[in-house]
Design a binder for these strands. Structure first.
Lengths: 152, 152
DNA sequence: TATTGTTATACTCTATAACTATA
DNA sequence: TATAGTTATAGAGTATAACAATA
């Protein structure tokens, strides 16, 4: 049987992992002149192609006002442009600049490198145990957050 | 041999875990009227007892100016007080109010509950595999961030 | 001269509410 | 009447730099 101590230690691992992953990501993005929120917008844009701000607001789960600010920042730093929407004169289309498209494409390369750091040379058995354990924990966490969401 | 796809999927799990843990924590703290940064300050205070702001700045790894703001917020919301330092008239001691001490003590209870959500009913073999995998990944991540730190 | 914490200034992320232009 | 995006306002976290009081 597992002791409370063992569970607390495992939780500590999970919390530290979340912290370190966050820090690593923030630093890496900072080297590209990006913040996590702006990078998230680029990521969504990469998956959707040119998008209106209201679509981006829904995708990121933030207010329209906030999207105005994020796009302002990304325009000022040369990652995206605002173009008139071809048929709806109320809307604007946010599109990549060359630099923005290049940067977003490199997110994938960055992820491969990060996967190397985390998993290269790890024995298969341990890797498999990790993957199964994470799948289980993620299921529990998703379920817990869904019920918390529903209750609110 | 592991494929790139398997590694990418495992990385996706790690990133999602970091995201969900962060969100869950932020929501839970919000219910107590706290932000992550303010909660972090309370956590350090709990481990150290009454502390000067400069000690807290070093503990949180943020600027002294930032600590002024965090303590301002925690004083305004009734979690801590500023007291004169008994021997150094430049410094102030940040101490818990009753409410702050109670809240910080409940962080531990909250962690036990969170551990329950993540691990209750998980087969021992899977739990052990998860713990070993996390230990390995954490070692790699700490090492990578330490060398990145040293290089900068 | 060095340290502690403040004020001054600035940038980012976030929100709600009011408003304009357009559908 | 509803939608898209803006301005207005506000709060929180973060930083550097200048400064006052004290060591």
């Amino acid at each position: 049987m597992r002791t409370d101590d063992q569970r607390a230690a495992a939780l500590g691992q999970v919390l530290e992992l979340a912290l370190l992953v966050n820090d690593d990501m923030t630093r890496s993005l900072g080297r590209d002149g990006l913040t996590p929120s702006r990078a998230h917008l680029l990521w969504e844009l990469r998956g959707r192609g040119p998008s209106t701000q209201s679509v981006l607001a829904a995708a990121l789960g933030v207010s329209p006002r906030n999207i105005t600010g994020l796009v302002d920042g990304l325009v000022a730093t040369g990652f995206v442009t605002r173009e008139p929407h071809p048929t709806d004169r109320r809307a604007t289309l946010v599109s990549f600049t060359d630099r923005g498209a290049r940067t977003a494409a490199e997110f994938e390369r960055g992820q491969l490198e990060f996967a190397s750091v985390l998993f290269d040379g790890m024995p298969d058995r341990r890797f498999d145990g990790l993957v199964q354990g994470l799948a289980d924990v993620l299921d529990r966490l998703r379920a817990a957050m869904a019920t918390a969401e529903a209750r609110s």
